[in-house]
Measured scan of single mutants.
Amino acid sequence: YTAFGDLEVFLHGLGLEHMTDLLKERDITLRHLLTMREDEFTKNGITSKDQQKILAALKELQ
């Protein structure tokens, strides 16, 4: 049995499950992801397509 964390649930909701391992390897938490700047997305290997999905979701949360 494995409990999913906030990061996994957030990514799954956006259809971005493939990013879970990448972000965990880089010790990026959901809190960090929510406050990242555009250059940090790129530096951490997050594609512009995935970045757009994340940023759109963040706008909806605000």
Score class of each variant (00 low, 15 high):
Tyr1Phe: 09
Tyr1His: 11
Tyr1Ala: 14
Tyr1Asn: 10
Tyr1Ser: 10
Tyr1Lys: 12
Thr2Val: 03
Thr2Ala: 04
Ala3Lys: 14
Ala3Cys: 09
Ala3Asp: 15
Ala3Glu: 15
Phe4Cys: 09
Phe4Ala: 12
Phe4Trp: 05
Phe4Lys: 15
Phe4Gly: 14
Phe4Met: 15
Gly5Met: 12
Gly5Arg: 12
Gly5Thr: 12
Gly5Lys: 14
Asp6Gln: 06
Asp6Leu: 00
Asp6Val: 00
Asp6His: 03
Asp6Tyr: 00
Asp6Met: 00
Asp6Ile: 00
Leu7Ile: 06
Leu7Tyr: 00
Leu7Pro: 05
Leu7Cys: 03
Glu8Lys: 08
Glu8Ile: 01
Glu8Thr: 06
Glu8Ala: 08
Glu8Arg: 09
Val9Ala: 14
Val9Met: 13
Val9Glu: 15
Val9Cys: 13
Val9Lys: 15
Val9Pro: 13
Phe10Gln: 03
Phe10Asp: 05
Phe10Val: 06
Phe10Glu: 02
Phe10Thr: 06
Phe10Cys: 04
Leu11Glu: 00
Leu11Cys: 02
Leu11Trp: 00
Leu11Asn: 00
Leu11Ser: 00
His12Trp: 06
His12Glu: 14
His12Ala: 15
Gly13Thr: 11
Gly13Cys: 05
Gly13Gln: 14
Gly13Met: 08
Leu14Asn: 09
Leu14Tyr: 10
Leu14His: 13
Leu14Ser: 12
Leu14Glu: 06
Leu14Pro: 02
Leu14Gly: 04
Gly15Thr: 02
Gly15Gln: 06
Gly15Met: 01
Gly15Tyr: 01
Leu16Val: 06
Leu16Asp: 01
Leu16Cys: 07
Leu16Asn: 01
Leu16His: 04
Leu16Gln: 02
Glu17Ala: 10
Glu17Ile: 05
Glu17Met: 07
Glu17Cys: 09
His18Glu: 08
His18Ser: 08
His18Thr: 05
Met19Phe: 05
Met19Thr: 05
Met19Val: 13
Met19Leu: 15
Met19Arg: 04
Thr20Pro: 05
Thr20Phe: 11
Thr20Glu: 06
Thr20Gly: 08
Thr20Ser: 11
Asp21Lys: 13
Asp21Phe: 04
Asp21Tyr: 05
Asp21Cys: 09
Leu22Ile: 08
Leu22Asn: 11
Leu22Lys: 14
Leu22Val: 13
Leu22Gly: 10
Leu23Ser: 03
Leu23Ala: 04
Leu23Asp: 01
Leu23Gln: 01
Leu23Arg: 01
Leu23Phe: 12
Lys24Gly: 03
Lys24Ile: 09
Lys24Arg: 12
Lys24Asn: 09
Arg26Asn: 09
Arg26Tyr: 01
Arg26Leu: 00
Arg26His: 06
Arg26Pro: 03
Arg26Met: 00
Asp27Ile: 00
Asp27Trp: 00
Asp27Glu: 10
Asp27Cys: 06
Ile28Arg: 01
Ile28Ser: 02
Ile28Asn: 00
Ile28Pro: 01
Thr29Trp: 00
Thr29Tyr: 03
Thr29Val: 01
Leu30Pro: 06
Leu30Val: 12
Leu30Phe: 12
Leu30Met: 10
Leu30Gly: 02
Arg31His: 03
His32Asp: 15
His32Lys: 14
Leu33Gln: 01
Leu33Gly: 00
Leu34Met: 14
Leu34Ser: 13
Leu34Asn: 05
Leu34Cys: 14
Leu34Gly: 08
Leu34His: 10
Thr35Trp: 04
Thr35Leu: 05
Thr35Ile: 03
Thr35Val: 06
Thr35Ala: 09
Met36Tyr: 02
Met36Cys: 03
Met36Thr: 00
Met36Asp: 00
Met36Gly: 01
Met36Lys: 00
Arg37Cys: 09
Arg37Phe: 00
Arg37Lys: 12
Arg37Gly: 11
Glu38Cys: 05
Glu38Arg: 07
Glu38Ala: 08
Glu38Thr: 09
Glu38Trp: 00
Glu38Phe: 03
Glu38Val: 08
Asp39Ala: 07
Asp39Leu: 05
Asp39Val: 05
Asp39Ser: 09
Asp39Gly: 08
Asp39Tyr: 07
Asp39Cys: 06
Asp39Glu: 14
Glu40Gly: 04
Glu40Ile: 03
Glu40Val: 02
Glu40Ser: 02
Glu40Ala: 04
Glu40Thr: 03
Phe41Val: 04
Phe41Tyr: 10
Phe41Pro: 03
Phe41Trp: 11
Thr42Ala: 13
Thr42Val: 13
Thr42Asn: 09
Thr42Glu: 12
Thr42Gln: 12
Thr42Phe: 07
Lys43Cys: 08
Lys43Gln: 09
Lys43Asp: 09
Lys43Leu: 08
Asn44Ala: 14
Asn44Lys: 07
Asn44Val: 14
Asn44Gly: 04
Asn44Met: 15
Gly45Ala: 03
Gly45His: 07
Gly45Asn: 09
Ile46Tyr: 04
Ile46Ala: 03
Ile46Pro: 04
Thr47Ile: 09
Thr47Gln: 11
Thr47Asp: 13
Thr47Phe: 05
Thr47Tyr: 07
Thr47Trp: 05
Ser48Glu: 12
Ser48Arg: 12
Ser48Gly: 14
Ser48Cys: 11
Ser48Ile: 12
Ser48Tyr: 10
Ser48Ala: 14
Lys49Pro: 09
Lys49Tyr: 08
Lys49Gly: 10
Asp50Lys: 01
Asp50Gly: 01
Asp50Ile: 00
Asp50Leu: 00
Gln51Tyr: 14
Gln51Trp: 04
Gln51His: 09
Lys53Tyr: 01
Lys53Pro: 05
Lys53Asp: 05
Lys53Asn: 04
Lys53Phe: 03
Lys53Cys: 05
Lys53Gly: 05
Ile54Leu: 11
Leu55Cys: 08
Leu55Ile: 10
Leu55Glu: 12
Leu55Tyr: 08
Leu55Gly: 13
Leu55Pro: 04
Leu55Ser: 14
Ala56His: 10
Ala56Ser: 12
Ala56Cys: 11
Ala56Asn: 11
Ala57Val: 04
Ala57Leu: 03
Ala57Pro: 08
Ala57Phe: 04
Ala57Tyr: 08
Ala57Thr: 07
Leu58Ala: 15
Leu58Gly: 15
Lys59His: 06
Lys59Leu: 06
Lys59Met: 10
Lys59Trp: 07
Lys59Ile: 06
Lys59Asn: 08
Lys59Gly: 14
Lys59Glu: 10
Glu60Cys: 08
Glu60Tyr: 07
Glu60Val: 13
Glu60Ile: 13
Glu60Pro: 14
Leu61Glu: 15
Leu61Gln: 15
Leu61Met: 15
Leu61Phe: 12
Leu61Ile: 12
Leu61Asn: 14
Leu61Ala: 14
Gln62Tyr: 06
Gln62Met: 04
Gln62Asn: 15
Gln62Gly: 08
Gln62His: 04
Gln62Leu: 05
Gln62Ile: 05
